[in-house]
Design a protein around this nucleic acid. Structure first.
Ligand code: ATP
Length: 738
DNA sequence: GCCGATTATCTTTTT
DNA sequence: GATAATCGGC
């Protein structure tokens, strides 16, 4: 084997073996270079699984001479796909790679773009997001007069999604339903699938479900894909669902060149249908599979690794994995107790500021992680007031914003007129005097005649729909007419969107509103046009449908700009696969993390929370901080007091005791004035800004953390490198800017 | 019937 | 602390 490779390298003169062996340890190399066939790389955090996967692709292309077009690489997020592609380009020293690196969902969408006909769908289908899917379910509950029996539409959607993950079709689901609740869901599921088809739309789960169905029923199509993609490589295999697994099985076919990498301890998407048995049963599913275990961690120091390993050892029934590092003991983990969320944020600022200076780190070397998106609000406050650059990734996505979805809805119905969901969305946006009652009339009229809603609108302009004054609806159809002409004449995407914004009256209505909110909305829709222009540049012969598809599947994670120096704030889920020199895991309170609803948590859910903690801890390279608060306002009331059980599962000897139980700083009294109906926070003149570096004669250098009082009574909280936190009167302290 | 404004509700994690 | 159901004025 080695001989063969050596010879190849010499004759081809590319990707010298030396560099490959330089960059991989023997185990990793074994995985990278083993001949195509079923291969499982099963290993703990930071052991280089993703790296091995990437190198294996490069190896296949350069050393084995495999045509890149025959390789299909699947990642968990679009961002991960993009990163892997970039790394491959660099490794192979190429500018263009005809190789597919994408998510299961993107891949499924591509299959459907080719073969929508065999499942009786039409061209230019829409892809519905979670909100739109739930909207359809709400409509069904209303129309069918189904008493949901306390089931919320979002809960119903969840059950339907899980069914699709398990490839259970609506009729099957309804027939096997035993409980009353399941029967109701089955009924809704049947109607939901019907309506999706009627609107020529798919939900996220359909993007896997239908391609698998197509493969099930059409051996010829399956054969085509098998011939095309002879080598499959899948990252984060522990978080694949049953439907995704079936897709892999289908595609693997006889050739069975399937490389999967994963770590059962990092499975954190069970709630979304991920099935850990996929990875645990790989050897059974693919007889003769080679298994490579990687044990050296290249990311974290020993303290961090020991702590994470001890924590995850509390889970039962896992496959234990050895993990070691040569990076040394490193710093101990610091636990910080704070009085409330506000002081938690300030503590982060304090630690970050010191560490940045003492270690010469960049802001982008830091990550702040949390369990729920809602926590980002209080966390960002301290950063904002201290002027520390940060970026929140995840949460509300750009393309999920109301104004963006409104504009895109216009584009969607131009592309897919059957998309009643989008028609309904913008028929009266901006307001043109067509209320809910009128829309209902047109909707009923349309349904009775098997027309889509848009066609119904045209009928209404001819006075065919009772109770609808033609002129108002004509205002709407005229806009659609004009836009249709533009799209038919091949108007470029960005200018088409600009026309939508103008002709729909959307822009005018926002300008007229003239509030701070309408201003940002205006900015956002302009950014949308810019984004479309950028998309056109990147993919010159792209169609509007392709743009809509990209927009439907893109994650907000892409917003992390590698060139800007900012602290990253994101959920623990979002941090999967990433690494940072310094990681703060926040909100470690019993109830919040682990997250517990209605006072109870199932053992398997608790284990998933623990895996999430494990994922979070193992993102850290050199410094790990864990914070928790004594009090936290959850939403309306309710506060936690107890520290998370996870903290007690971390061995004492990996913790820095100097920071255990740090005294909480007192709450800054908020000076709030009421004036009319608006609330202002007083912003008096300050001698120093929060975050400023200062010098004190006795205490030395420090950073301003907080400021209270005014003029003569101005008091600053300063964190000094020498003595820690102090409160001083500005008048007396004789502070100098440092 | 439509619209703007006020009240109630509810908040995990995401492709 | 943002969105959805509800209310009262036009
Ligand atoms: N042989 C090696 N030599 C030097 N650095 C390595 C080696 N293998 C991996 N690394 C580095 O270790 C870090 C972790 O690698 P990678 O992200 O591939 O691990 P992983 O197993 O996918 O991690 P996780 O499962 O925790 O996301 C990366 O910074 C990578 O560059």
């Amino acid at each position: 084997m080695h001989l063969y490779l050596e010879r190849n390298h010499i004759s081809l003169g590319i990707m010298p073996m030396l560099s490959l062996k330089d960059k991989l340890n023997p185990k990793q190399y074994e995985a990278v270079a083993c001949p195509p066939g079923p291969l499982l790389i099963f290993a703990g955090a930071g052991s280089g699984k993703t790296r091995v996967l990437t190198y294996r692709i490069a190896f296949m292309i350069k050393q084995l001479g495999i045509n890149p077009g025959e390789i299909l690489a699947v990642t968990f997020t679009n961002k991960a796909a993009q990163e892997m592609r970039e790394r491959l380009l660099k490794l192979l020293d190429m500018e263009y790679l005809p190789l597919l690196v994408l998510t299961f969902h993107s891949f499924g969408a591509r299959i459907l773009r080719e073969y929508y006909e065999v499942i009786s769908y039409k061209k230019n289908f829409s892809i519905y997001d979670e909100d739109e899917s739930i909207g359809i379910i709400k409509g069904i509950c209303k129309d069918l007069q189904i008493e949901e029996g306390g089931l919320k539409p979002s809960a119903i959607k969840h059950y339907i999604s899980r069914a699709k993950d398990e490839m259970i079709d609506p009729v099957e689901y309804a027939e096997s339903a035993n409980l009353h609740r399941q029967k109701i869901i089955g009924q809704i599921y049947i109607e939901y699938q019907k309506r999706l088809r009627l609107h020529n739309g798919f939900d996220f789960d359909d993007l896997i479900y239908w391609p698998v169905k197509i493969f099930d029923g059409h051996p010829d199509i399956l054969q085509f894909y098998r011939r095309h993609f002879k080598h499959l490589l899948i990252d984060e295999y522990q978080d694949t669902s049953i439907s995704q697994y079936q897709m892999v099985k289908h595609l693997a076919g006889e050739h069975k060149s399937v490389t999967v990498v994963g770590d059962d301890d990092q499975s954190i998407y069970g709630w979304r249908g991920a099935d850990i048995t996929n990875i645990l049963n790989f050897e059974r599913d693919f007889p003769g599979a080679k298994v490579v275990k990687l044990e050296q961690n290249y990311r974290s120091t020993q303290n961090i690794l020991s702590a994470a390993s001890a924590l995850i050892a509390n889970n039962l029934g896992r496959k234990s994995k050895a993990l070691w590092t040569s990076l040394g003991e490193g710093q101990r983990i610091k636990v910080i107790e704070c009085s409330d969320a506000e002081s938690e944020s300030l503590s982060l600022v304090e630690q970050l500021t010191h560490l940045r200076k003492s270690e010469g780190l960049k802001y982008s070397d830091f990550a702040v992680l949390y369990r729920t998106n809602a926590q980002s609000r209080s966390l960002e406050d301290g950063f904002r007031t201290s002027g520390i650059p940060y970026i929140i990734v995840g949460g509300l996505r750009f393309y999920e914003r109301m104004e963006i979805k409104d504009i895109l809805a216009y584009l969607k119905i131009l592309v897919n007129p059957d998309d009643n969901i989008s028609t309904q969305r913008i028929i009266n946006v901006p307001r043109r005097g067509i209320g809910d009652v009128s829309i209902d009339y047109i909707a009923n009229y349309s349904r009775e005649r098997n027309l889509n809603l848009l066609t119904g609108c045209y009928h209404a302009t001819e006075g065919k729909v009772d109770g609808i004054p033609a002129p108002k609806i004509k205002e709407f159809t005229k806009i659609i007419d004009k836009l249709s002409k533009l799209i038919d004449s091949g108007e470029p995407l960005a200018s088409l969107l600009a026309k939508i914004i103008e002709l729909s009256g959307y822009e005018a209505s926002l300008v007229a509103e003239a509030t701070p909110q309408s201003e940002t909305r205006l900015d956002n829709i302009k950014e949308l046009v810019d984004g479309a222009a950028e998309f056109e540049n990147r993919t010159p012969d792209a169609t509007p449908e392709q743009f809509l598809e990209e927009v439907a599947l893109i994650t907000d994670m892409d917003r992390r700009d590698p060139n800007s120096d900012a602290v990253t704030m994101m959920t623990l889920h979002g941090a999967k696969g990433l690494e940072f020199p310094v990681v703060f895991i926040t909100g470690l309170e019993e109830g919040l993390f682990p997250l517990i609803r209605d006072g109870q948590i199932a053992p398997k859910d608790l284990e998933e929370e623990r895996r999430l903690m494990y994922v979070g801890m193992t993102r850290a390279q050199r410094h790990l901080y864990l914070t928790h608060c004594r009090y936290r306002r959850h939403f309306n009331r309710s506060f936690f007091g107890k520290a998370s059980r996870f903290l007690s599962e971390i061995p004492e000897n990996t913790l820095d005791d100097a920071y255990v139980d740090l005294k909480p700083i007192s709450n800054r009294p908020k000076t709030k004035l009421r004036e009319g109906r608006y609330e202002f926070e007083a912003e008096p003149k300050r001698s120093f800004a929060i975050g400023a570096d200062v010098y004190h004669q006795k205490f030395g250098y420090g950073v301003i953390l907080g400021i209270e009082g005014n003029g003569e009574n101005e008091i600053v909280t300063i964190s000094f490198s020498s003595v820690g936190r102090k409160k001083l009167m500005v008048k007396m302290a004789g502070l100098k800017p440092a």
